[in-house]
Amino acid sequence: MNNTQIVLSSESLNVQSCIDWIMSPESGGIDVFIGTVRNATKGKPVLKLDFEAYEPMAISEMEKIAQQAFEKWPVQKVLIHHRTGTLQVGEVPVIIAVSAAHRDAAFEACRYIIDTLKQTVPIWKKEAFEDGEVWVAAHP
């Protein structure tokens, strides 16, 4: 589909190339969400994050979410890029970009995509602290 771009990559994500892909003369609003590695969790310094994915299923779940966005809102293009591997503080694990004729659809679809991705896409992150490592959300 030329209105959808899904990428799972072990290489650095490029925000500008995502914006270049999503821009089009038909669009009046572009919404871009950039997730970044934060330097602390609950006040505890984070050294790095390790991301692991079940790659074929992660791609298929991201495609489903993009499809749902097209069904729910009048959006024109949807882009989802996600990283795997080791990321340092300040690096970018995820970029979502949505274009639409008008901003409401772009804002709402972008929010829906990142929220749903966090619930359904089989990607896991392990936080490294000074005193050990923890798989995020694994335990109650």
Partner: peptide
């Protein structure tokens, strides 16, 4: 078959 523990992407 795959075991999917709680996901934490994004």
């Amino acid at each position: 078959i795959a075991i999917i523990p709680p996901v934490s992407g994004g």
